[in-house]
Amino acid sequence: MNRWLRHHRYALAVALRRLRLHPFSSLANIVVIALMLAVPILGASVLQSSQPLARQLAVAPELTLFLKAGTPPTAQQALLARVREEAGARIAQARLIPRDRAMAQLRADPTWARALDALPDNPLPDALIVTLRDSAAPAREAADLAQAWRQWPEVEEIQLDSEWVRRLESLLSFVRMGLGMLAGAVVIVVLATVFNTVRLQALTQREEIAVARLVGATESFVRRPFLYLGALTGLAASLLALLLAWLALTPLNTILGGFARSYGLDWAIRLPAAPDLLLSGLLVALLGAIAARLSVTRRTRF
């Protein structure tokens, strides 16, 4: 056990020494990887912070069922009871708005009062307004209910007030897909950058590696410092990417905060949770080690 720890301590010390011996090239590689990592971190921050914003934005999705002219009050009450019974827990509220009450509400607004006085009779239909509960896919839920309720004989037309929800869901789905593709690009950049860096390191250390092999160094002993070099490069790039993302969020939140407050919203973009950031940093370090392993496998055999 002590021998194993001593070997890994030695490999880590060699990797740190090689980073110090080539500070400019090491820093350039770290900056390149960090810039690529900062973009998905910012994207994940926006996506995560947009979830509560969707709940703060307007009201829950509503469906307005316009009833056919001449539907008697008893049939309207029966329809209201049927909606509550069949929709069940999916709805938060269902209320009936008779045409006379709707007209009275419009007449109470001075903007509409004069225009309504010119009408010979009440043109408004009786309406049933259904407010849905919050769910994972409110737009799809509203569309399914509307499709079922359109088949009812008392319903003339249904208006969905959830178009904004559908658009927001589409936008968030697009962002998730974009982040997935960006994560794939980051993996390629990390692998290619670390692979090329370690390959150049191995070429410059050919004589040192050859001497080590002559005195009995094993393949794993020679390769281990390069693996630590790749892992340290990925870890340093992750820390720098986190710092860059944090610095970028400061001016962004200043601008977005004022914009959100003008709409009565409290919104700020925050970095993902610490466990997620730690896991992503470890994954990048692992990718660096894998790239180094692929690079030195054929370069250290003499």
Rank of each mutant, 00 (worst) to 15 (best):
E86D: 12
L19M: 15
T204I: 10
A245Q: 03
L244W: 00
P225G: 11
E141N: 07
F24D: 11
L37P: 06
A54F: 04
Q51P: 05
A11Y: 01
L265R: 00
L191H: 01
R166K: 13
T71L: 11
R140L: 12
V187I: 12
L287N: 01
D126T: 02
F24I: 15
L119I: 03
D276W: 02
R114T: 10
L5A: 14
A192D: 06
L203A: 13
A142S: 10
F174D: 12
L243V: 13
W164R: 11
L232Q: 06
A13R: 11
L203I: 08
G281T: 09
L37Y: 02
A58V: 07
G184M: 09
R199Y: 00
I269Y: 00
A60E: 13
T218E: 09
I30H: 03
G216H: 06
R20M: 14
G88N: 09
A102K: 04
A108G: 15
W112A: 13
L203K: 02
L179V: 08
R213I: 05
T204H: 12
L249K: 05
I209E: 06
S170V: 02
G234T: 04
L96S: 09
T254Q: 12
E169T: 08
W149G: 15
R206N: 04
L200S: 10
Q147H: 06
N29T: 14
